[in-house]
Design a protein around this nucleic acid. Sequence first.
DNA 1: GTAGGGTTAG
Length: 645
Amino acid sequence: MVEQNLRPKPKPKPSKLHADVEEKANNNEKHLNKSTLGLCDQIEKLAFRKRYQEALELFEILEIEGGHEITNRTYDALVNACIGSKSIRGVKKVTNYMFNHGFELDQYMSNRVLLMHVKCGMLIDARTLFDEMPHRNLVTWNTMIAGVVDAGDFIEAYRLFLMMWSESCEADSRTFATMIRATAGLGLIYPGKELHSCVVKMGDSDDVYVACSLIDMYSKCGSIEDAQSIFDAMSEKSTVGWNSIIAGYALHGYSEEALSLYYEMQDAGVPMDHFTFSIVVRICARLGSLEHAKQAHAGLVRHGFSLDTVANTALVDLYSKWGRIEDARNVFDRMHNKNIISWNALIAGYGNHGRGEEAVELFEKMLSQRMRPNHVTFLAVLSACSYSGLLDHGWEIFESMSSIHNISPRAMHYACMIELLGREGLLDEALALIRDAPFEPTINMWAALLTACRFHKNLELGRFAAEKLYGMGPEKLSNYVVLLNIYNSMGKLEEAASVIHTLKQKGLRMLPACTWIDIKKQAHAFCSGDDSHEMTKEIYQRLDELLLEISKHGYSPEARYLLPDVDKKEEQMLLYHSEKLAVAFGLISTPDYMPLQLMQSHRICNDCHNALKLIAKVTEREIVVRDASRFHRFKDGDCSCGDYW
DNA sequence: GTAGGGTTAG
């Protein structure tokens, strides 16, 4: 494989190309303003200044000119240039040149060449080089293992690690840092703990890299306590250490704690990097606190990371989730380097706001810029079509996945299409799509059909879908709730009761609905049936007024969606709950759990939707609420996300 | 004498 790469290629024709290259050489020399320097020196200098692309361009000139003696130093610079610019073409050219000129690789240079392949993602060639290497030292092994871990092949990393141990009985802190990363990737805490004790035995536990990978491993494997104690024990807490522990708390859902750790980091005077801001922006998105988010955005700009792709993508996502799609667009448009994740974030943003046309437009713009979509892109654009009822676009895009983009639709894409067809009432087509899928239909696909059946009151097909759903593990509460709601809405109370019986038998419990709102940085939480808030009386009074007022505008709660065995008092609780509570405060609410009848999909139900429209109208306010998947902005009795029920 | 390691976004 490598031999093939190293085989000499026909020399380029001298004519025009040569002229071009000479022109370039002249320009470069002018640019460098050191025309007296030899090409090798220039390459080394360019690589040192991180002008990798230019270094490689000069190397091409050197190749054509011929007759240059290349030393270790220049090859070293070229390796850096290839790694820095992630140029596969460069790697091939440099290795070809070495091979053609009979350059003898010592241990150092072999390791560098291996690294160059690894860092440019050429894992197959790297592995061949590795396997054919006459001598491997610690650095060789570490380089290869890190490459395999980077590629996500954690099991292979383990295999290599065991081979390394049996061959040489040596491993150092770098090996362990990498292997701990591998166990984090596998999500396995026991091998992680074993490596941890090895590290302690070898006296490497003070190593800052080891500590950081341990923090990350423990938090990714579920033990934030262990992560915390590693962090506490760090004698010198580095930026990465702080980043890792903050990300750890965020991962475990402790967003407030994560944010206060970030402020602690700030107070401790630890320099923050673009990782810090990417993590913090994400936390703000989750917290739903625009105030903190704005501060994070400002901090990011102030610290000079306003060009960072990851942090900006997190901002695009944050503003989208906050219903500020124009702000999201603004950040997006200013980004210098957009990758597929950035595009996906904005497309999903438009989709979640019911602005399907714009999502499709953006998707097409992306294609015209030769950005290659991936399966997440299709998920975003298809669900955008689904929310906005764009049937034709949906079909066209779904079919283009395999025919044009060579991406096989996964179950989630099918589920989106089933939802789209179902919403438009094309239940037979939806069923046909399930039957035509080239794999076993999944829970989500049947559940999408079931939801559609509920809306269009097709009991027969609904029951069929429900039967398919039953017995498909892992059983999800939400599927039972869909079925329950179907029976309820059709007045089939006996069947509904039997679903509840099944639920109880299986020990599946519905969580009480819970809503919270941020008022002056203080969170107020309200659970269903909970009257512990000190202003409960005032809140309910205001709610009564509002309910009375909106009922004059034609609002009537759809009690038939409620469970048959809830008593009157509970019914009141349910109707009073959620967004309405927050609205009583006249503020924006950020509910996490929806009232019971919303559990099926964690989305705002018809009932709440109507109520919120009317409340927006009678209070003459703009109301923004978020359910599990998107924002709904109510203004003058209209909802900007579109009616999808 | 030179090389290899940790944290982020959809």
